[in-house]
Nucleic acid binder design. Structure first.
Length: 838
DNA sequence: GACCTGCTGCGGCCTG
């Protein structure tokens, strides 16, 4: 007996033995009624089926073929192929006439040619590839049949320029089909109303929240001897034995580290401790070659691997069903990230995700308790769309000019229909038009910057084929410097390291990379040739990546935990474990809280220290420290050394300063915040670095052809040339202003800084004169030394501080930082600088 | 060229 072919979403689910969740029915109804919306649910909750079955039910005629009807955007290529598999089965059943296709940078030329003739009924693609479709001369004809767009992992795109690119593309598609449905899928997101408004361009839509019964289990791996757990340090290798025990007990696990360099070291340490795990554990981060990473990802999917040591390269929603357990070494920095990472485990039905936090120093014990509390309370970070980034707009203008041309008067309302450009001013619009037309006042003599021009009919187009080609090659908003490729002599590529790292190595010297010990043979162009090396002493590459500050949500939760502790409520294993440290802090000074601002002053051989603990994340502390330093120096000439971390800041003066007398409310004033901040920091330099990205997105700087990528140095040179030229000959260039704006509001988190100042003004100042550095002050001092001293001197220095501390604590060992740092900074952290040749 | 703990993501040309 043959069962009837399913024709409704629930029928299809039934063929799999599944019953629909209520939220899935809600989505089906909404789509059937022609509504757009945002679907928010944890990973593995069934979002894909909710939206896809709804789309098939509404748009597919089982008996007929269909032109391009559904666009499915994903932020990652690896997700695209996963998605293709997930969509194929229901489509075969519910819409046998439909075709499904994939279009990313990986798509081969045969498939591309096929798509050029005829696009599939549903196309899975990335924001960048969608923009490339918009740049086709026949874009309108090819895309006007689209009736629904699904944006997967919208939380990942919303807060950055890639998301703005998506906003612009959606506006374009809506222009061609005003009844277009848009659905966003998101997990781990704070402000859903904003996320929805940005996606729908201000139109209202349906907000659907999925199952929330999958709150992960969150626990902490506690140090065996809390009283000897270090006060500072980030690598945390002393937790290695405990971690190994956990891995032994679990099935497949992911071990997250915050930096690539740390991941390399942990992987190596695991292998040294458990040589029998060779081949069973693997390493995964963003600087490893694609092939290496693909192999690891396949191994995870097939359940071949016991553990993978990784960075946020494995954050996103690829479904690794065999993964049972996630461990996070070091601060997770935010609640959303915690849940995102936890969601990598327990993908199979009936299993609950579990994440174990592994602290690397004592304060992270408190952070772990705070993270669990905040996750339970659902205090997730919001992400906000950038406001009218003109570099993205300029790129989009050229894209649209290529995609059939535009008329300014009809394009402007379309652009303003996006959330990001809803307040685009007329003069900004005119500036952008002039910029694509002739590059602005300083570049009008150069034909390559006359990219777009109105034709006789008044349509703005790209007349030059060379400009068109370069533009297509440069589409996108992700800017990264080319690294030096690390490659075996026989050809196998391992990945990339930074130029500056390789430049300091000599041939014959060894370094640790891609989980192997390598000997540098020679460097040729942008390729470093290596062979496997023996021996033990090796440098570990460091990459210059981003710096994630502790989120406001997590920092606030941490202050709440400290208040618990101050009230004697040691109501979690983490707090009990941190009790020795907390009581020492309370005895020597006080515990920071939400209503007070703790200020500690200390006189040492180094000078006059001030420690403050606003708990606002390291970027804000950096801004705050330079602001305070600048304002103090204006009253009395003095210079400060500054040190910051996610919890607080230190100002150190070599000359006498009466801290209690100087800590006046006026220091925390709002007035003149920006000017003082710009003056206190080297803002010009920061802006110039920021401008590099803007120059590339706006198409000023060409990245070069693939395979012959320009070196970071070359690109840097050309972007700083533009920066200088604009400053001298075109100071009103809006891209310059954008660079400054991004430095202030994104890099330095200006908004959060202003909010922090406002809160600090309401807090009661509690001043403590210290005899010795407290557990909270100590990491700040260590961070400052680390910046100045080599690792050997650093260890000596810390040993001396420790001896002093131990004496102070009455001979009782309070901490073990020196031992931990000596352990954590083996042989050579970085290779010695190469001597300059005469 | 600075950073030292410091993430992630995509895309593309010419060869007849």
């Amino acid at each position: 007996m043959t069962r009837a072919r399913p024709t409704r979403p629930q029928d299809w689910l039934a063929t799999r033995g599944w019953r629909p969740f209520p939220f899935q029915r809600t989505v089906w109804r909404a789509v059937a009624e022609g509504e757009s919306g945002l679907l928010h649910a944890g990973t593995g909750a069934g979002k894909t089926h909710a939206v896809w079955l709804a789309a098939l039910a509404r748009f597919a005629d089982p008996a007929a073929a269909a032109p391009l009807t559904v666009l499915w955007l994903t932020p990652m290529r690896a997700l695209a192929s996963d998605t293709e598999r997930a969509l194929a089965e229901p489509m075969a059943a519910l819409a046998p006439g439909w075709t499904l296709g994939l279009r990313t940078g990986d798509t081969g030329s045969a498939e591309r040619a096929r798509q050029a003739r005829r696009l599939p009924s549903a196309l899975i693609t990335t924001p960048e590839s969608l923009s490339l479709l918009l740049a086709r001369a026949d874009a309108r004809a090819a895309l006007r049949s689209v009736r629904m767009v699904v944006v997967d992992e919208w939380h990942e795109l919303l807060g950055n320029k890639r998301g703005v690119q998506v906003q612009l593309a959606l506006a374009r598609l809506r222009q061609w089909n005003p009844t277009l449905l848009t659905w966003g899928l998101s997990a781990t997101l704070g402000d859903l109303a904003h996320a929805s408004a940005v996606l729908l361009g201000g139109a209202t839509g349906r907000l659907v929240e999925g199952r929330s019964d999958r709150l992960p289990q969150i626990d902490t791996l506690l140090p065996a001897r809390p009283e000897r757990f270090p006060w500072a340090g980030h690598l945390g290798l002393r937790m290695l034995p405990a971690l190994i025990t956990e891995l032994e007990a679990a099935g497949s696990s992911l071990v997250f580290l915050n930096t690539r360099s740390q991941a390399e070291r942990w992987y190596q340490a695991l292998l040294e401790a458990r040589p029998d795990w060779a081949g069973l554990i693997a390493l995964h981060h963003g600087s490893l070659d694609r092939e290496v990473r693909d192999w690891v990802e396949q191994g995870l999917k097939q359940g071949r691997l016991k553990a993978v040591v990784c960075t946020s390269s494995l954050d996103l929603g690829v479904d690794f069903s065999p993964v049972e357990r996630v461990l996070q070494i070091g601060s997770v920095k935010g609640v959303a990230r915690l849940l995102q990472r936890a969601g990598r485990a327990g993908h199979a039905p009936g299993r609950r995700p579990r994440i174990t936090l592994v602290p690397t120093h004592s304060l992270e014990l408190i952070e772990a308790a705070a993270a669990r509390q905040a996750a339970k309370a659902g205090q997730l970070e919001a992400r906000r769309s950038p406001e009218k980034p003109l570099d993205v707009l300029v790129q989009h203008l050229v894209t649209v000019a290529l995609g059939g041309g535009f008329r300014p008067e009809t394009l402007l309302p379309e652009i303003r229909s996006t959330w990001a450009y809803r307040e685009l001013a007329d003069d900004e619009w005119q500036w952008a038009l002039a910029f694509v037309r002739q590059g602005g006042p300083s570049l009008h003599a150069y034909p390559e910057y006359r990219r777009v021009a109105p034709d006789d009919a008044g349509d703005w187009r790209v007349p030059d084929a060379q400009v068109a080609r370069r533009h297509r090659m440069g589409i996108g908003t992700i800017v990264s410097d080319a690294g030096v490729t690390v490659q075996f002599l026989r050809g196998g590529r391992l990945g990339t390291v930074e130029e500056s790292f390789i430049a300091r190595l000599r041939p014959g010297e060894a370094f640790l990379f891609a989980g192997r010990l390598l000997e540098l043979v020679r460097v040729h162009g942008m390729v470093a040739y290596v062979r496997l090396a023996g021996g033990a002493r090796a440098a570990v590459p460091r990459w210059n990546g981003g710096r994630m500050p502790l989120s406001t949500e997590l920092a606030d939760a941490m202050l709440a935990q400290l208040e618990h502790a101050a009230a004697g409520q040691l109501d979690s294993p983490e707090l009990r474990c941190a009790a020795p440290l907390l009581s020492l802090q309370a005895a020597w000074s006080a515990l920071p809280g939400r209503d007070t601002l703790l200020a500690e002053s200390l006189r040492s051989r180094e000078g006059w220290h001030l420690f403050l603990y606003p708990f606002a994340g390291r970027q804000v502390h950096l801004g705050l420290a330079s602001l305070l330093g600048w304002r103090l120096a204006r009253q009395q000439p003095v210079t400060f050394s500054i040190s910051v971390n996610d919890y607080g800041l230190e100002l150190l003066s070599a000359t006498a300063i009466d801290w209690p007398a100087r800590l006046q409310p006026a220091l925390f004033d709002d007035a003149g915040l920006l000017q003082d901040l710009l003056a206190g920091l080297n803002a010009g330099e920061l802006a110039q670095r920021r401008f590099r990205e803007i120059a590339r997105i706006s198409g000023l700087v060409f990245n070069g052809y693939p395979g012959a990528a320009k070196s970071a140095r070359q690109l840097q040179a050309s972007s700083s040339l533009f920066y200088e030229v604009f400053r001298q000959h075109d100071p009103d260039n809006r891209l310059l202003a954008q660079a400054e704006h991004e430095v202030l509001w994104q890099e330095l988190e200006g908004q959060r800084l202003a909010e922090t100042l406002a809160t600090l003004r309401t807090r009661r100042l509690v001043h403590q004169a210290l005899k010795r550095p407290t557990p909270f002050a100590f990491p700040l001092m260590v961070a400052r030394f680390r910046e100045r001293l080599g690792s050997e001197k650093l260890a000596e220095r810390i040993a001396r501080m420790l001896a002093e501390l131990e004496r102070a604590a009455g001979g009782e060992a309070t901490t073990d930082v020196a031992a931990s740092l000596a352990f954590e900074q083996p042989a050579a952290v970085a290779p010695p600088r190469r001597r300059r040749r005469p």
